[in-house]
Nucleic acid binder design. Structure first.
Lengths: 89, 89
DNA sequence: GCTATATTTAGATATTTAACTAATTATCCA
DNA sequence: TGGATAATTAGTTAAATATCTAAATATAGC
């Protein structure tokens, strides 16, 4: 839960997830969408990977990133649980 | 979205929300649950209030906090939208 | 093998964050 | 009114974060 919310806290990273929702992208393609250096994007991608929000695979010189939804399911559960207020188990 | 995820990023604040889910509490009651000074708790409560995740009202010397769910609904929407991957509109 | 391209790693730095102590404000009650 | 209690505000500080530049690594293609 901690790595997850840490990852979601940053607008750049949330934007990256939104982009990946539309389909896989390479690090370079992701970088083009931001006014930010490649190392900075790499840093964000690494953080997203640690939170298991994305996966990556290397093909030649390129590294392609994909959205991973398992952990998002968990966060959904956590939030839904809060919304069940009043209905104490 | 930014204030929301900023608020949810911290474990203490997430814990406070979980506590408030069970019912309203005063600042002091919340503080008792943590090994942390009152000003620190006050800081977290202020942050949660700014994110509109809690509301507060003063009664005598006490300030009672309540969970507010409207903004949580929004976050739910955002996450659900990511989970709809593949189904591009 | 050599050079260009894609990406990551290392190191530096300014800003933000979460904690503390001390001080202030507001209310209660004897 | 004056002390005790609840909570917040002010000011400080160590640690975490997001960015950059420079360097390293890996692969492609001539």
């Amino acid at each position: 839960m901690n790595l997850l919310f840490k990852a979601l806290r940053d607008p750049t990273r949330r934007r990256i997830l939104e982009m990946l929702k539309e389909g896989d992208l390479t690090a370079g393609q992701i970088g083009e969408a931001f006014a930010m250096t490649a190392p900075s994007i790499s840093y964000h991608l690494d953080l997203l990977r640690h939170a298991q929000l994305v996966s990556s695979r290397k093909k030649g010189q390129f590294v392609t990133y994909s959205l991973e939804t398992t952990v998002l399911d968990d966060s959904l559960g956590w939030i839904l649980d809060l919304l069940k207020k009043g209905k104490r188990k």
